[in-house]
Computed example of a mutant assay.
Amino acid sequence: MKAVTLRANWKPREGYVLGRRDVEGRRTYLGSQIWHSPKVEVVEKDVPKIGPTEVLIEVKACGICGSDVHMAQTDEEGYMLYPGLTALPVTLGHEFAGVVVEAGELAFNKRTNRPFEVGEPVCAEEMLWCGSCQPCADGYPNHCERLEEIGFTCDGGFAQYLKIDAKYCWSLEPLRGVYSEDDIFLAGSLVEPTCVAYNAVIERGGGIRPGDNVVIIGGGPIGLAAVAILKRAGAACVILSEPSASRARLGLPLGATHIINPLKETVWERVLEITKGMGAKLYLEASGLPHLVYPDIEKAIWEGRQLNSVVVVVARSDAKMPVFGEVYQVRRASLVGSQGHSGHGNFPRAISAMATGTDMTAMITKRISLEEVPENLKLLQTDKEEGKITVLPWRGN
């Protein structure tokens, strides 16, 4: 089968000391400090063999995530930009949906409480939690101490087939009758990024009350998903700050009520103008440019009348945040981090929302084959006009 793999050289930066969970030559929790000269290529691989609790999935759709782009992108010294957990070489891709073509005898479907059947449409979690460490036992699988990640440490969805333990799979049957047969898988490939946004704004950010105002900084897929989630949750003003006109326009059908171009307008002033001096209850940082956006967020909190604002950090970045503690103390504001998507029923809730009117497929702007992945990963390093580019592994050049 065809698969898109990433390789890189193990070359720790001068002065970097491996952590206790790093594995020399293979695995690190800080990819941007280790991996040098990443290279993406389309290769031939064997179809995976499954175990008794696993399913084999024929991939029908897999979205390109910003992390895929950053894993293939380098800084001026040739090091990978992505700062997170990585083990190379690996098949990329983690926002996938497909159909079960083989299931182990102990591969149970949570929807039916019976073994998966061939033909079941599914998506899956990207974070493979162990279920037995302290964070997992406490209900925080996103912070598993033995974490593995599809497309980061084990082979992912930029391939014709992949295997995964059934406990991470979620049925897409609720989408039947709502989407066409092909669109079920397009929608299914957006469940994972939607759950990242859901975890950020609802679980970590604490959610909102109907009538609250919200600000989303960054109109990539996570930011756009947050727009849809917060509008459905009852936000009055859903303000999206995004410099790309084409990406900003994608926010309108998803629920954005106001668009700010940060290259042409002062964000904090426009936020206070739109909200008539109140500011927002929730600010989502989804741009990955903390040094540029935090001064505006803090100014809006400081000058606005809204107390108890929550700032949620969801974008990954090596850059440090310029945070002024006085703002958070005086205005009773909170700053919280958000990682991942699992737990708290996020996946079934996202699928249910999609089945009842929240159509995320509006953010898909381009569909490509596996052979076109390398060139599009390169394109996305500089071109910020596309929304979500989705890979259709069954499509040939």
Rank of each mutant, 00 (worst) to 15 (best):
23 V>S: 07
347 F>H: 00
379 L>R: 15
14 E>V: 14
373 V>C: 00
386 E>Y: 15
126 E>F: 04
234 G>S: 03
174 P>H: 02
8 A>C: 10
22 D>W: 04
385 E>Q: 15
235 A>N: 00
167 K>P: 01
227 V>Q: 11
277 G>Q: 05
154 C>V: 14
344 H>F: 13
208 I>A: 00
104 G>P: 09
241 S>F: 09
341 H>R: 12
10 W>V: 12
379 L>I: 09
280 A>L: 07
101 V>S: 02
105 E>W: 13
322 P>L: 07
287 S>V: 06
21 R>F: 12
42 V>L: 06
349 R>T: 10
209 R>M: 10
392 L>F: 05
330 V>M: 14
359 D>K: 09
224 L>E: 00
63 G>F: 00
247 R>D: 03
175 L>T: 06
217 I>H: 10
183 D>Q: 11
255 G>A: 10
252 L>Q: 11
199 N>Y: 08
300 A>F: 14
223 G>K: 12
270 R>N: 06
119 G>L: 06
7 R>K: 14
102 E>D: 08
279 G>D: 03
210 P>T: 02
325 G>N: 15
51 G>F: 07
351 I>Y: 01
148 E>T: 05
274 I>Q: 10
122 V>I: 12
50 I>M: 10
189 S>P: 10
165 D>V: 03
284 L>W: 02
96 F>R: 06
364 I>V: 13
63 G>Q: 04
325 G>H: 15
322 P>C: 09
178 V>N: 03
258 H>W: 12
354 M>C: 02
158 F>A: 04
147 L>W: 13
81 L>E: 14
231 K>G: 04
136 C>Q: 07
323 V>I: 15
119 G>T: 06
302 W>R: 11
278 M>Q: 15
274 I>R: 11
5 T>Y: 12
140 Y>W: 12
99 V>G: 05
110 K>G: 04
131 G>N: 13
265 E>D: 13
284 L>V: 07
297 I>N: 06
205 G>P: 02
36 H>Q: 10
239 I>Y: 01
73 Q>E: 13
149 E>R: 09
302 W>C: 03
56 L>G: 04
301 I>F: 13
187 A>N: 01
13 R>W: 08
251 G>H: 09
365 T>Q: 08
393 P>A: 08
55 V>C: 07
377 L>R: 02
4 V>Y: 11
151 G>K: 00
265 E>I: 07
363 M>K: 07
310 V>T: 15
359 D>Y: 00
288 G>I: 01
253 P>F: 11
171 S>M: 02
225 A>S: 15
87 A>P: 04
184 I>D: 06
257 T>W: 12
251 G>T: 13
344 H>C: 10
364 I>A: 05
295 P>D: 10
125 E>C: 04
